[in-house]
Design a protein around this nucleic acid. Structure first.
Lengths: 188, 188
DNA sequence: CAATTAATTAACAGGGTGTCAATTTAATAA
DNA sequence: TTATTAAATTGACACCCTGTTAATTAATTG
């Protein structure tokens, strides 16, 4: 009785999906205007048949969506403290730098991905998490705090600009600027 | 001796271009995922021939680019004080509210347009202008001001979020939040 | 090996692109 | 009004991409 239950474990599937993802990244970096983002071109670049693409994805959007979900899940796990002890030293500042570093690694790729609304929304919610647990004491001594969404969206705006400009500051320095803005505004 | 010099003054051209622009706006608002943004559909919606489209634009991107330029030029003129006297009362705050109001009018349309990199870059430079002339005195008494790009990009981030969320605050209140952020950060 | 399933191949109708030449229609100077 | 100019339409063209299918080949694994 032959039965193959774990389809996704098939090395052929693994390989194909990896090839398609790499092809998409390669095409995006080569044509930042996304003018060559077709199933045809992706399959050609992956050196796989176009019909194989349809075995795994519904269309290009679907491929991007799956990649986005994987990336975001990776990012979230980076921001999750491993144990109780790590939680202590895992300050808001550390989390912000971890976050910025993550985008710094494949800056040109994430720069493109951030034009995707779905991706941006999910990144926004990750930032919102960071902001919400930033400094619990903030709410107690602060009579008129800004809505967390204002803090998060301005952070996303700054990071988007930073990526578009080719990361003109180091991740650390950028984090400093963002923290300065939220601590003192522009009146230091 | 017949001679027609001013082609662009031809009422037929005026009408056609207006029809195509209206059709684009109509399609964008009907299909926010931009799935129906083809020359074919735009021409159909405009009730003009597809070949006519190509008489005026190279492709859909070109049409959007022309619209973007027109809108930005309109926005810039709104932000330019009419005379020396008006300059007095045209504070940074007033300019920021004028700016936000402009996007509030066709919020759903600008929300889509802000996904266009070219448009976003130009809006960014308009914000940069507002920020640069915000408060001349700021630089004198402020030893460590943030780069103007940080202020501008965070503003753009906030406004983008606000548009994506369906303008949950009034333009005036949003301006207050932005000003509060830059005046005091999140520690009021 | 034998069974299973992934990948390939070739073909299909459908739709959008960008261009062209010939024709019709609208604007306007005289 | 009429003659001239140019815009708009029409129909056609080759080309490319899409999404699907059926038949075949190739790779994985019990």
């Amino acid at each position: 009785m032959y039965k193959k239950i774990r389809k996704t474990d098939d090395p052929r599937v693994q390989r194909s999906k990896r090839m398609f993802k790499d092809a998409l990244i390669s095409l995006i970096e080569e044509y930042p205007d996304r003018s060559k983002l077709t199933v045809q071109n992706i399959a050609d670049r992956a050196e796989l048949n176009r019909a194989t693409f349809y075995l795994h994805y519904h269309d290009v959007k679907d491929l991007m969506q799956q990649m986005i979900d994987e990336m975001l899940s990776e990012l979230r796990s980076l921001l999750k403290p491993k144990d109780e002890q790590a939680k202590e030293s895992f300050s808001g500042r550390t989390r912000l730098i971890t976050f910025i570093d993550y985008f710094y690694k494949n800056a040109s790729f994430y720069n493109i991905m951030l034009e995707n609304k779905a991706f941006r929304r999910k990144v926004f919610s990750v930032i919102l998490d960071i902001v919400m647990y930033w400094e619990p004491r903030r709410t107690t001594r602060n009579p008129h705090p800004l809505p967390n969404e204002i803090i998060a969206s301005s952070t996303l705006g700054i990071i988007s600009w930073w990526l578009e400009e080719g990361t003109p500051y180091s991740p650390n320095y950028l984090a400093n600027l963002i923290i300065q803005l939220f601590e003192h505004g522009n009146n230091h």
